[in-house]
Structure formats: structure tokens, C-alpha cells
Simulated assay, not measured.
Amino acid sequence: MPSVTAARRALTAGLTVTLALALTAACQNGLGNRADAPATAVSPAPGPPHGGTPPTGPGGRVACTPEMLRFHAGAPPRTAHRMLLTVTNYGYRTCDFAAQGYPLLHFGDGRHRAVPVIGDSRPRAVVRLAPNRSAYATVRTGTAGGRHHTAGPAGRPIAQFGMALNARATPVQVGLDGRTPVRVDPPAARVTYWQPSREAALKW
């Protein structure tokens, strides 16, 4: 019979060979895991929203597009007959509203013309949005003492509306914060140009 010492030497040699084979397999598959462990896929770096490149204009400027923006709308507290529209750039490039200086709003089925703009609200410079920055527009939903106080078609509550960033774009639906309806008189409604601050928008 082999001695106890010889048996231990044989066992040690066998373990050494097994360990060497396992390390070799791990090196061959490029992982520090076992050879039979599944490889972990590495996701590519995130690209522009929807995988596209924002359109550029003269001077390499980037026009703001719906894919780059988040929209919020609601009635500011203690402000009658007004609605505040907010857009935030969640992309990675600065964009602007040079092509269309104010939002094109549609209250209804979109077949009617967009809400007219308040001409005097045009800012001194084109509004540009850096990443994570916001722009604002005030919507006059009617006139004080006007028909918007009625429950008829001229003064109906809305919880969402259509908005386009230019005349060629299909309007996107913007829901009001909290889905709290705002009463709007479409013929009397007006909208400002995009403003660089909330304070500038609420002046109108």
C-alpha cells in the first residue's frame, strides 16, 4: 500500500493541475470569472435622443426639437387667466428657438390656426437653451370678464393641448401638471415669445 505521504503528494499534484486549467480557461475568455460564466455585455454610451443628431443651422447652431425637450404646463398660483408653459433641455447640446420664436399652440383638434403671439413680448435676443436649462412662455387663456367664464364652447376646460415648435412639425400633446383642467377661451387666447426666465414670462 502507498504511504500516507505519497497519497498526499498525488492529491496535491492533482489539485495543482486542476487550478492551472481553470486559470487558463479564465484568461482565454478575457474574464476574471469562470470559463462557463456568461459574459456581461457593455452598453454603448448614450447618444442623442432617439438616436439622431439635432439639426443644425447657420453658424452650426442647433434648433431645439421635441426630442430634446421636456414640457410642463399649468396655471401659476394666484395668477388669473394665465397658463405657464415650460420647456427644459435634457439633451447634451445647447439649442435655440431662432427658427420659431414662440410655441404654436392648438386648443382643439388642430385644424384651427395656432394661437396668435403677443408681438410686444419678443425678447431682445434669441432664447438659447443650454443642457438642463429652461425657457418659458405665458399663455393668456382669455380676458378678464370674458366668455371663458362660461361653460360653453368658448370657455371650455382643457387638460391637454397641442404644441408645435415650427409650422412644419406635427403638434405634440402637452398635458397640464396634475391634469388639473384650465378654462380656455380659444378666440381670445394669446401666447408670448419664448422667454429666458420665469419672471420675464409672467410679466405678460
Score class of each variant (00 low, 15 high):
T94C: 14
L69Q: 07
Q173R: 06
A25Y: 13
A63S: 01
T141Y: 02
R8M: 11
T79R: 15
R78D: 06
R133G: 01
R124S: 00
A135L: 01
G74E: 04
C95W: 09
P77C: 06
L176P: 07
A99F: 05
D120I: 06
A200P: 10
R198D: 07
M1F: 00
T12G: 00
V42N: 02
A189L: 08
P48Q: 07
T79Y: 12
H148N: 10
T138V: 13
T180D: 12
A7W: 07
T86M: 13
N89D: 03
Y136V: 00
R34Q: 08
T150C: 07
T56K: 10
G155H: 05
G91N: 10
P103C: 01
Q173P: 00
P103G: 08
L69K: 08
S134T: 00
A80W: 14
S3I: 07
Q195I: 15
V174T: 01
Q28C: 15
R190A: 10
D177R: 11
P123K: 04
P116D: 00
R111D: 09
V172Q: 14
D109E: 13
D120N: 03
G32H: 09
H112C: 10
A6L: 11
M68E: 08
Y102N: 01
A200C: 10
L129F: 02
P123A: 11
R183V: 03
D36I: 15
E199H: 04
R122V: 05
G178R: 02
P2Y: 06
V184Y: 12
T40V: 15
D96H: 13
R140K: 00
P55I: 05
A169E: 15
V127K: 09
D120M: 06
A154C: 05
V62S: 08
T24W: 11
P38R: 13
H72N: 08
R128M: 07
A135I: 08
R78A: 06
A144Y: 00
C95G: 10
A10C: 03
Y90I: 03
W194L: 02
V87D: 05
P76C: 11
H81F: 13
N132W: 03
P48S: 00
F161L: 11
A35S: 15
A37D: 15
Y193F: 14
G101N: 02
G119W: 10
L19G: 13
A80I: 01
V139M: 14
P187G: 01
S3G: 04
G59Y: 02
A26V: 08
A73H: 07
